[in-house]
Design a protein around this nucleic acid. Sequence first.
RNA 1: GGGCGGGUACUCAAGCGGCCAACGAGGACAGACUGUAAAUCUGUUGACUUCUAGUCUACGAAGGUUCGAAUCCUUCCCCGCCCA
Length: 387
Amino acid sequence: MFEFKIIAKDPQTKARRGLFSTPHGKIETPIFMPVGTLGSVKGLSPDELLQAQAQIILANTYHLYLRPGHQLIRQMGGLHKWINWDKPILTDSGGFQVFSLGAGTKKGKSKVKLTSDGVEFKSHLDGSKHYLTPEKVMEIEHDLGADIIMALDECAPHDSDKKYAEKAMLRTHDWAQKCLTRHLQLEKEKNHRKDPPQALFPIIQGTVFEDLRIESTQYIASLNTPGLAIGGLSVGEGREVMCRMLEVMQPHYPEQKPRYLMGVGTPLDLLEGIERGIDMFDCVHATRIARHGCFYNNEGRHHIANEKFFSDTLPLDPDHPDNPTGKFNRSYIRHLVKENEMLGIRLLSLNNLYFLLKLMENARGAISKGYYRDFKNNFLSHFRDTV
RNA sequence: GGGCGGGUACUCAAGCGGCCAACGAGGACAGACUGUAAAUCUGUUGACUUCUAGUCUACGAAGGUUCGAAUCCUUCCCCGCCCA
């Protein structure tokens, strides 16, 4: 289980194509993973995720732990059964919430307090206090039952000073080791016929400091896990910096483990990541901008509410005849969005996920044929995006 | 016929002598969003120009008072309610 088979490597870049096996099926990489924080990719049913060609989706430990509680999900037979999704699932650990709920350098009243043993949260729902440790996070993620589970980490702000960046990195390393130890115990206790095995991915940190990134990559790579992740990027540092960090880390990844770049991103970011050897991505951006009225197609990103779409008879994405939203035209979808009809943002969400997943499929094809760079340049020659 | 209330920008609606090209809400137009505290947030919304400022046109219509009027007075035109 959790075998990662590299099928093809692009001769000119670090891009590679692979197949990652999980108890709920194989994942073709490079892949984009839609995010369903609360156990649902907002607005879309499992059937629609399949129409979008989703192979694996995310959920979030922190959110599901707060409500409805991991015990309930275990009682319901685990996340797959509960949300009616029998393909692979990845649960994020809540590490990102350490960052987004305001730890680190942010001033003012933070909802997060860090200690060497773990992290104290004030719930964003009701202000109640919760204490998460690496061990506790593993126990929760085992109850949830996702195929891939993330270690607890600290995602320090990109503008942290070096001293703090190093502290957060070392804490992340310590927590990764603690997660692994507890995870292995839990795996040993598990009846694998009833509860399939899970893969722990620890997370590289180090913000924007090259030496920290290298140190972190080497440490995380040394842990005996089926894959690893890169955290703390695309959090405001800028694309150039992100790409440089990816290049700095690249030589230190283990060849045979899938690499997951967390929280990325836009179509351009995905292509930059793949070129630098990334296998897996997730991001809320595509579905969030859909809810805010934006859609992707080969020309770039657009606001459906713009007046120019008032009487536009084209589908959102005319270049992809298999796009599951293809029977609806822009005029109608614009009308739905302007009138706050939920079908509007559902169709935009479906379109955007399909677009990114199709982009991944095409990238895989290009890697197999050995012309990834041409593929990427061709895409960029027509795709216009402000991000 | 008499009494009362009211007519303000695309709509609703505040303002009741100068700080008013006019609060606020909606709408319209545009922008942002990267491991989801986000179906959210931000900007613009009379015209023109030498555009961190100025000029012109505007609060039902026409006159008037005043240094100055969306705001006060007169007449007229509409709308609503009540009484004959």
